[in-house]
Nucleic acid binder design. Structure first.
Lengths: 239, 239
DNA sequence: AGCCTAACGGCACTCAGTGCCGCTAGCAAG
DNA sequence: CTTGCTAGCGGCACTGAGTGCCGTTAGGCT
């Protein structure tokens, strides 16, 4: 722990794009391991760089700041979300599209679970890391809001900007809630199902202007017995 | 700009609690002015302390970090919100109570408008300040969520935790939207009215469990002409 | 094989944040 | 008025994050 555990000479890895990605991953991986082992504050950038076999200066060529290393793939996910929005069927419900897009975040967390769990432990204990995560989520949320605003304006919504901001916040909150619950349980259980359930609650609340889609028209003959009316109406409303 | 503009000798101001508050305000005021004049990064903590007539070390006795000085009254507002919740009528709609509580944030922003405007300019241009603000908002939001969760659980809501998180996020987003729009306009216009309108949208979406209140049961004879049915149903739904 | 680009490491610097300590203003007791 | 104690304050020194600069050289390209 006192001697420098240089993994490899790592001579000029970043010459090729693939090499750059590889070194990025190596740095992120080393950082997460050191944070988990020795704590966030106790781990210096020097330690991380040394563990990845590069110099301290090189670390800052791959990440703008120490805490960026914990949210290394953030930019990729945002880019994927933008693509998803660009390719989305304009006929689909905007809120539904937005929910599908944040599903990408869930996927990325599920993809490497051990990193997610270690990061989760840090976000719960280290205030500065928590703040960083909140800022990261805010960026997703802004992307969501921008998309929703565009769609709502197409629908001729007067308060598109406000509704977009509120809906984006609600979707992000639902996503985070599901994510945190899942991580707290150690990554066991079906996140996608839990997310779908949570998103249903949000989508339900933020349908197109008003709550018109929530209206059910029942057509029954006057001869229908009461219990049958209750059963049929109930089935539609509760189901 | 090069010579140190020490305002006063400021000998032992913080001896009394009132003196401490005074110095806190002086530091915050000096900081905001310097940030606005020379930029956030270009202003060092030394500059702020010197402008307030104290040593650099003293600054850090009043604020934990440089960026804390921009959100000096954050803790007070959170405390006020907690009080508001503790004293709230348990019969009132939880979402309504939460909306009233975030109104305190609006009030504090309106109380010293020039500081709010300068801070707003910074949050729009300096990424680190933006992140700090987002983290600050997140703290309000967590307080809201905790209150709402308690109330929803009282109501026997199965998904209290989720609904609380989502509702809190929606309320915070609505509040921020109104706040930012108002600040962008230079602090002119009626915020409280705009806020009430925005909160109405949120409250509408997050009523008690389900959408039961949105259900309308129409009872009409089969002899009723179609246009009359449409008119009566329409009147209820649109009104 | 040789050039030439750019990745890398290292140095030096600024500034945020912290522990430590000596100083003294201001209050209390005699 | 004097003495003693307390605590706010300033200053010093240190660590660590983040940045500009530059010499070196690995490695791709011709």
């Amino acid at each position: 722990m006192t001697d420098s555990p240089r993994r490899a000479p790592a001579t000029r890895v970043g010459a090729t794009p693939a090499g750059r990605r590889q070194l990025r991953r190596a740095l992120a991986s080393a950082a997460v391991d050191l944070f988990a082992a020795n704590g966030y504050e106790a781990t210096t950038v020097d330690d991380i760089a040394a563990a990845a076999g590069v110099g301290r200066r090189t670390f800052f060529r791959y990440f703008d700041a120490k805490d960026d290393v914990l949210f290394a793939n953030h930019d990729e996910i945002v880019a994927e979300m933008e693509e998803e929005f660009a390719a989305a069927d304009p006929a689909r419900d905007p809120v539904e599209v937005a929910c599908a897009a944040v599903g990408l975040v869930l996927d990325s967390y599920a993809d490497d679970l051990d990193v997610s769990l270690k990061r989760f432990a840090l976000t719960r204990t280290v205030p500065s890391v928590r703040d960083k995560e909140v800022a990261t989520v805010d960026r997703y949320q802004r992307v969501l809001a921008r998309y929703l605003q565009g769609r709502f304006e197409e629908q001729g919504d007067e308060t598109a900007s406000l509704r977009a901001a509120v809906a984006a916040a609600a979707i992000a909150a639902a996503n985070n809630h599901v994510l945190r619950r899942w991580l707290r349980a150690g990554g066991t259980g079906d996140i996608k199902a839990a997310a779908a359930e949570a998103f249903a609650l949000v989508a339900d609340a933020f349908r197109a202007p008003g709550r018109d889609e929530a209206t059910v028209v029942a057509v029954l003959t006057t001869a229908t017995p009461l219990h049958e009316v209750v059963a049929q109406v109930g089935a539609v409303l509760r189901g």
